[in-house]
Amino acid sequence: MSRRRNPWLLPASVLLALLLGLLPLPAELQPLRPFWLALAVAYWVLEAPERVGLGVAFALGLVGDLAFGGLLGEQALRLVVMSFILQRFRSQLRFFPLAQQALVVGGLLLNDRVVSAAVHLALGVPQLPWTYWLAPLVGMLLWAPVYLVLDALRFGRKA
């Protein structure tokens, strides 16, 4: 079966994830902002590991650090940890139903918050308020639509 490849989709999805991360939100919704870049990287690590691995995750994390003005290297570390776990269990995760994949991604996003809290603690940076721990739940709920849209665009199907 011949699958149509869209070489522009990877950079476009990463750029869109960066833009969604920079989108201004009201103060009440700010803690619920999902880690869009992690969702995009997770998709590509699962579906195109020959294109996106630990090095790409690190580079995208550095770009995210520069774009969002956080601690330099924090997002890079967080994305590399997530990508490593995804690569390690990729062969099993690809065959999970989408709902189970969403639970795994939610767990990885929660782990991302733990890594972020550990970095902040180690550097003496103030911790984020507890409401920021709700963002992994939002990311988990968004996994299925993100996955289905990127998959449809990647294979040229209608979403």
Rank of each mutant, 00 (worst) to 15 (best):
R88L: 15
A67S: 11
L108I: 10
L39V: 03
V149E: 01
D151C: 04
V105Q: 08
V52A: 03
L66W: 13
L20N: 07
V125D: 01
T131W: 13
P31C: 07
P31A: 01
A38P: 04
F95W: 15
L9H: 00
G70N: 07
A117W: 12
E50Q: 14
F58T: 06
N6P: 02
L29E: 08
L71H: 09
S91D: 15
F84I: 06
L9I: 00
L18V: 03
S83M: 00
F35Y: 12
V52S: 01
L77M: 15
G69Q: 03
L150M: 05
W133E: 08
W133Q: 14
G64S: 11
A102L: 09
G106Y: 07
G107C: 06
L98I: 14
G61H: 04
W8A: 12
V52T: 01
Q87M: 15
V146S: 11
V80S: 07
L153Y: 04
A152P: 00
L22A: 11
G70M: 10
F95V: 15
V41P: 03
L9N: 03
P7N: 09
L62V: 07
M82V: 13
V104Q: 06
L25P: 00
Y132N: 02
P26M: 13
L148R: 12
R113V: 09
A59S: 13
L148N: 06
A76S: 12
W143I: 04
S2D: 13
R78K: 11
R157H: 06
R157G: 04
V56W: 14
A99Y: 11
F58D: 06
Y43E: 07
L9D: 05
A57N: 02
L121W: 14
L15G: 11
M82E: 07
A67K: 02
M82H: 00
V56S: 09
R5T: 11
V14K: 12
G21Y: 08
G73R: 08
L32Q: 01
L134C: 02
W143D: 02
P34H: 05
G106M: 09
L22G: 09
L98G: 04
L20V: 05
D65Q: 08
L20A: 09
